[in-house]
Design a protein around this nucleic acid. Sequence first.
RNA 1: GCCCGGGUGGCGGAACUCGGUCAGACGCGGUCGGCUUAAACCCGACUGCCCGCGAGGGCAUGUGGGUUCGAAUCCCACCCCGGGCACCA
Length: 800
Amino acid sequence: MDRYDPKTIEPKWQKVWADEHTWEVSNDATGKPKTYVLEMLPYTSGEPHIGHLKNYAVGDAVAHFHRRRGEYVLHPMGYDAFGLPAENHAIKTGQQPRKSTDESIEAFGRQLRRLGVSIDWTREFGTHQPEYYRWTQWIFLRMYERGLAYRKEAAVKWCPNDQTVLANEQVIDGRCERCGHLVEIRQLEQWFFKITDYADRLLDDLETIEWPPHVVTMQRNWIGRSEGAEVVFRCEELGIDYPVFTTRPDTLFGATFFVLAPEHPDVLRLSDTPEVHEYVNRALTESAEERGDEHRQKTGVPLGRTVTNPATGEEIPMWVADYVLLEYGTGAVMGVPAHDARDFEFATQFDIEIRRVIDCGELPCTDDGPMVNSGRFDGLHNREAYEQIVDWLESDGKGRRTVSYRLRDWLLSRQRYWGCPIPIVHCEKDGLVPVPDDQLPVELPDVEDYAPKGKSPLAAAEDWVNVTCPKCGGPALRETDTMDTFVDSSWYFLRYCDPHNDQAPWDREIVKKWMPVDQYIGGVEHAILHLMYARFFVKALADMELLDVQEPFARLFTQGMITRDGAKMSKSKGNTVSPMEYVDRFGADTARCYILFIGPPSDDADWQDSGVGGVHRFLSRLWTAAAEAGETGSDPDSSGPSDLLRKAHWAIDKVTRDMQTNFGFNTAIAAVMELTNEIYRQRESAPPGDVRFAVATAGSLIFPFAPHLGAEVYEMMTGRRVWEEPWPEADPALLARDEIQLVVQVNGKLIDRLAAPSTASREELEELARGSDKLAVRLDGGEIVKTVIVPGKLVNFVVR
RNA sequence: GCCCGGGUGGCGGAACUCGGUCAGACGCGGUCGGCUUAAACCCGACUGCCCGCGAGGGCAUGUGGGUUCGAAUCCCACCCCGGGCACCA
């Protein structure tokens, strides 16, 4: 072999790692600090794409770096095998989901091995395996026992294309997150997880984790905590109390009307005129997107009834209007047109009284100011009045302080085939009966026709559906809905710790040893879905005393997308890049390095074929340098450290800092390129021992990004295995220079550069700078009025 | 509309935490040279823009101001791009 040949090198090292089980870790005590590095598990729809290459290139670099810094690293891998992505892929390719899923898993396993990713494969699993989902069901039952999983009828989001209900989180701008169809609202009985019980903790604990600020913000917004008050408006005529939620109880005296959401169950009871009927029906059939359009004119119909404003005692008119949402607050609002833009618009539209109660500028205004038209609260600052009004309402029993959230409970049931069965039996006599633990798993039966049809395809599997009730022994029916895929992925990182346990989902002590995940890596598209659900699961499981952590992912890194010619890659555009094509052509090391070199990994980046060639050239040069350095003789005595030796230590320092701080892989790789270029420039002149050291160092430093070449080069230079070596340390003595370049400036403009000893004092530097012959020319009779000296850097003469 | 990012050569990007070496590391692309019968590969030199034969000079980090001896870096206003939120009371 006389040139870099990844086709030889890569299988060679992959075989060593597989034969020697190099990346496997045990759960026994080691005395080393642990690190848990995890990439988000992939959906099993087809083959790995370029995003996966980036995901694992980043994760593997992190894992290798930590290992060589003396940590014991858990780096496992598995598959999110149930759910819409896998099932839709199966439908598209006309296969049984189980078959297409297993094929996809096979492809992932094979390709990740070809990429040389350092994974402990003994911990691998798919969430569709009965050994796994048995415990998903077990967790569901624990949730059910605690009232955290419940069934109720509600207005839910329905995707007519995927023929299933969706969680709120899966509806983006009124459309299905997966297929993009407009969702409809249906009144259905469904299963929910009571994530709302955890709203405050999900919010507060964001403080305890190191996540990208924008992801934290997204979760905050999604939880949408608002503090305010519940105020009761009474309809005297019918003797009914209507509480509303408001964040502005200080504006209560300005409430001149009252609005119910069209879905509010009392609307037709209050008024069943044809106008009201028609309005309600129209609102119900409109899509969430149409209704949510902020810019359209306000609509509404009066109900011909009144409620009493508890502050003023006045009767104010009741309306029904679709700008009020049933699911937020109480489904009813007080209308304060003077101090709320929406209410102002509505009141203007329907000629309702607008009464200012805060002196805060032009109406409508939401700013602070002194109270007016508010009885005994007049003159107070509105913030102060806020407190006093709520106190007054509380003492009168007309209201209370409260908190409202945007977060809704997680709708987890799906009317689809390919998912984890919900372990519940419907008995005519006993109602909902949980399947006993010793009968788990409730296995997903094979069915002929698994196409979505609006109800679960499992209903057709009669043998499976008809069971005896575990409680009374009478005839009963299995629950036929399956679970949302996000349930499966809400606890998989726990199972990796103890993947073969068949007595429990995990051993608490073992999980305690590994959790939390120290570095989690994945796409930002899961900012609320998966990342919120997994946090909820961990908190709920911790409350059950099954876990000792409150947060699953201590640090999160969100990678940017890879585009092609500036455009998002998609099959329909035909601009996809298959990672394996490049692995075939250039090798895994080149593909991995390129995707890290292309730019900061958190940014979106554009894939350019010519750039791949450049990275391959660099790796080839490094290999060639190693091959040639291997042939050189012994080290002649040298006087002091060579420039090449210094450069090697500079590179160690640079790469180490880039790795430790913000995932600076692009600049880390650039530093190794610089070192390699320096080796080429100096390989004739530098002492051979230094050349060998520089080449070995380059191999050692490139190892986290290009493990095969790194191992090869390091072995060529030292005969040792790089992954068994500690991460190199830069010698501070070789980082420091004896001599610095002193910059001489006049009025901040550079005029000269001089060599100066790095230890020179301010006076010596000024002396040196004054001696510059260029200074005399520049001065040209001018007068030095001030001298700025920055030790180690420059001398600046201010001249007039 | 509100909240975050971000605007640097022909391109991707460095430097931007702490203001300080003619801004532009590294890579792509380009020009030239070497090797070769030739091409590819490889090796080497050059490559921000403008003027100039040259020495050299001028202009340059979205735009306009400001602070400073000195600003890509700090401050203010504006423009543009990307992302998030958005009738949540």
